[in-house]
């Protein structure tokens, strides 16, 4: 009985968590592209103006980032200025929650058919590498190991801490600017 009563609250909390994580990840993608050379090199292969979306089907939370050139991303919130070039779509919010709460690795979610790719698959592979790199920076190693296929052996603590601090600072600044605007 109690479980039935609290179920709507659980669903609402899950929806809010996924929405918040998308907002953090979108801003963090922008930040990591300003901080990390490897991410910039990955992103440079994307066309300028390339729009990437991660969303929950059928019309749930989403994050949209644009490759503005030179390996840099810009976070657009959940509104796309043009048609999307590449969309990674979670089939259900429960699947998005599994990935964004680091219970299931992104690669495993792909293997488990939790997500669909609409667009050029080679760009999807590239964006997955960027997301993995981002998660390796911003999550504690123990958590990141649950999120990515393989934690990068060449990412040592000093570099991780400095980069993570810069990314979080940029994310926080972006949040504040959004609120002010």
């Amino acid at each position: 009985m109690l479980a039935k009563r609290i179920q709507p609250m659980v669903f609402q909390a899950r929806r809010l968590y996924v929405e918040l994580m998308f907002q953090v990840m979108g801003r963090a993608l922008q930040a990591v592209s300003e901080v990390d050379e490897k991410v910039q090199n990955e992103a440079r292969a994307l066309p300028d103006g390339f729009l990437f979306e991660m969303m929950v089907m059928p019309d749930g939370s989403k994050l949209i980032v644009e490759h503005t050139g030179q390996g840099r991303f810009r976070y657009h919130g959940d509104k796309a200025p043009r048609p999307i070039d590449l969309s990674i779509q979670f089939k259900h919010i429960a699947h998005a929650f599994l990935v964004l709460s680091f219970q299931e690795k992104t690669s495993v979610a792909f293997a488990n058919d939790r997500m669909l790719v609409d667009g050029d698959i080679s760009y999807a592979v590239r964006m997955t590498r960027v997301l993995n790199r981002l998660e390796s920076f911003i999550l504690p190693k123990m958590v990141a190991e649950r999120a990515v296929k393989e934690y990068p052996a060449d990412l040592h603590l000093p570099e991780k801490l400095i980069s993570a601090a810069r990314i979080y600072l940029k994310v926080a600044t972006n949040f504040v600017e959004t609120v002010r605007a």
Binding site: F110, A111, I121, V125, V148, K149, E150
Partner: peptide
Amino acid sequence: ALDDGSIMFNPKE
């Protein structure tokens, strides 16, 4: 090869 879709399902990164 690094941009090929199959690489996503390789057990090792």
